[in-house]
Design a protein around this nucleic acid. Structure first.
Lengths: 146, 146
DNA sequence: CACAAATAAGACAATTTTATCCTAAATAAA
DNA sequence: TTTATTTAGGATAAAATTGTCTTATTTGTG
């Protein structure tokens, strides 16, 4: 469904959000450890998230990645997915046709649309804040048991 | 969402079904032309579908790929997807955790489950027959305009 | 200013997915 | 039985994704 890059991006954003609530910046090293991902690859993904304005980075000593505390509630899962995987998950045809719309639909167009719209809805209505809260409360988890 | 292989597999199955209704076998060459896919790669995918019992193949002169006419209504999209992409689309964790279940869910587990269940439902309730009928009636299309 | 700490960026490598090509095996017809 | 036709399967290649490493560039502190 999502690319590995996107999976890492979502988990990293949640971890950064949790720490930003406490005013702490985090490094790729800490993030990779916490979300169980390859560090250098994760760093690349963080760069993309910064470029897309989802997270902030501060270079130099005492630097790291952070998210503006007052933005966390407004950030949607869709923004993260969009920054990394683009919009193909919404726009692309389920069977890969270049043009696929109501006027010339692919065989699964209508049925697929329902599922995709539900996915889109879910991503657009899920905030980084709630995902972070659930981790903090121990309701959900960022990685499997070692 | 689906792999290229799976997209080709679905479209190929539909085209084979249409021809099987008319008692005609089709070759990878015809299939690839009709669904706009790379021929040799498509042939590989057809092999997989044969191995999984979704379609039949007949070697030699006058051979080709076909589906038992009376089976077409019973074949579900889920069988085709399963034969090619496996069951990861149903079973895998949305964020790639090795173990992710009610007792230790990933951050999107619950929300993702809703979407995935809807997808599963759609795949299990869509028959190859209806997809083939829609192509025959000109309601849907297997490829974009050249 | 110089140094240490941290992200940015580019080159490179490994893996997976997608795609091609060639040969073998099977089958119907002459 | 020979030949033409057609799928099966293995080897190989190309492209995309995932992952690593090394070197800039930035920034706070002494």
């Amino acid at each position: 469904m999502f690319s590995k890059a996107c999976e890492y991006g979502i988990k990293a954003s949640i971890f950064i959000a949790i720490n930003s609530f406490e005013g702490k910046r985090v490094s790729p090293k800490e993030i990779a450890k916490e979300i169980d991902s390859p560090q250098a690859f994760t760093a690349k993904i963080l760069q993309a998230l910064v470029r897309h304005g989802v997270i902030n980075s501060v270079k130099g000593a005492y630097g790291g990645f952070e998210i503006n505390k007052k933005d966390i509630a407004a950030i949607r899962l869709s923004q993260i997915v969009n920054a990394i995987d683009g919009d193909k998950i919404y726009k692309g045809c389920g069977l890969g046709l270049h043009t696929c719309d109501e006027s010339r639909p692919c065989p699964v167009h209508d049925k697929f649309k329902i599922v995709r719209d539900e996915l889109k809805d879910m991503l657009e209505n899920t905030s980084l804040e709630e995902l972070a809260f659930n981790i903090k409360s121990g309701t959900t988890f960022l990685k499997s048991i070692a």
